[in-house]
Structure formats: C-alpha cells, structure tokens
C-alpha cells in the first residue's frame, strides 16, 4: 500500500470525528511516513512500519473521549431524506421512551451495585458498634460486680471488634474491585462503538 492509499483508508475509518482531529491524526502519520522515507526506507516499507490500517484507526479512536465517539456513531453518512426525518419524528414516542428506559436501567444498575457496597459498610459499622457496646458493657458489669458476665461481654466485644477490622479491609477490596470494573466497562463500551463503526 502506498502513502496516499494508507492515509485514505485510515480517513474512512475515522470519518465522523471532528475535522481537526482527522487532520491532526493524518498529518502525524504522513509526517511519520515521510520521516521514515528520509531515513532510507521505501514508501511501502514506511507505510508498513505504521501498522495495519485497523490498528492505526483503532488507536486514534480509542484515545478519543467517549462523547466524541458517540457523535461519530450518530453522524449520518449522507444527508437525511424527508421521509427519514418524518419517520424519526413520528416514531419518537417509541424510540425516545426506549432510549430513556435503557438509560434509566443503566443508572439503576449502577445505583444497585453501589447500594450493595454501602450496605456492606453499614454491616461493618454495626459489627464495630457491637464490639464497642460489648467492651463498654463489660466495664459496667465489672463495676457492678458481675465478673463472669463482664468477661463474657469483653470476649464478645473484642471478637466483634476484630471481625469489624477484617471486614473493613475486605470491603475496601470489594469497593476497589467495583471501581476497576466500571472503568473496564467504559473501555468495553468504547470498543463496542469502534467495532460497530467499522462494519459501516
């Protein structure tokens, strides 16, 4: 593939991005290819050094913020025809409510997941509170002379306190894991957008 073909092929795959983004990316690769050729490689070899058209296009798109990618997908490849616009308006009760439902569903899934995390921490707090209550109770019981019961309360209180500490570290890991998962999901959504764009 020669330089012009390569750049044209990449341009097709990133069409829909803002014009300035397209010009910057293509400019970078054209300059890179020219520099390789100055170093002594042939045009074919220089183009090969860039990677495949798919790799290059994917890198450019992956680095684009999700909002710009959504614009790429929504961008019509040609001007709307009158009947298409009409259909869009007439069908809006359907597709608009479906879209809203989908968005609300996504948000509620997110809320549910984080409520679980909050619940876990609430459990943690209550176990810790039981621990404190047990230790406090044992002190009171010691003062009133119920030594055996005081010992019982102390043991139970310390046990709860220990469990609370362990749970704290465990739940921190869970929260961190969920944070990682949501980042991974956003990345997956991005690549889904890019994949869909390619089949167009």
């Amino acid at each position: 593939m020669n330089k012009e073909q390569f750049l044209a092929a990449v341009k097709v795959k990133i069409a829909g991005l803002p014009q300035s983004d397209i010009e910057k990316s293509l400019g970078y690769y054209e300059e890179m290819i020219d520099d390789h050729m100055e170093d002594g490689l042939t045009e074919e070899q220089s183009v090969e050094m860039m990677g495949t058209v798919d790799e290059v296009a994917t890198q450019i798109l992956m680095d684009t913020p999700l909002s710009k990618l959504v614009k790429v997908k929504v961008q019509p490849s040609r001007a709307w025809r009158v009947w298409e616009i009409l259909l869009l308006i007439l069908g809006s009760p359907i597709w608009l409510s479906l879209l809203l439902a989908a968005l609300v569903l996504l948000v509620s899934v997110y809320i549910v997941i984080w409520s679980v995390v909050i619940a876990l921490y609430a459990v943690n707090v209550s176990v810790a509170a039981a621990g404190i209550a047990g230790i406090a109770g044992s002190i009171i019981l010691t003062c009133t002379g119920n030594y055996i019961q005081a010992l019982l309360f102390l043991g139970g209180g310390l046990f709860c306190a220990g469990i609370a500490i362990l749970l704290f570290f465990a739940f921190n890991q869970v929260a961190a894991g969920i944070l990682k998962l949501s980042r991974w999901i956003i990345l997956w959504v991005k690549s889904w957008f890019i994949g869909k764009g390619r089949t167009k």
Binding site: Y28, Y29, E31, M32, M50, G51, Q59, M62
Partner: peptide, 26 residues
C-alpha cells in the same frame, strides 16, 4: 519531532509509531 523521539528512546524502550501518537496527544 515524532520520529526522532522514537529513535531516541529506542535503546531504553521500544515504542511503535501508533503508540506514540496518543501519548503525544495526551
């Protein structure tokens, strides 16, 4: 410039042309 940067860091770490671009943009 781009190509020179790749050559300069090559003894230490290899970076492809397509990897450098997003880094420069960031």
């Amino acid at each position: 410039y781009g190509y020179q940067i790749i050559k300069d860091i090559k003894p230490y770490v290899t970076i492809s042309e397509s990897t450098l671009y997003p880094i420069l943009r960031r």
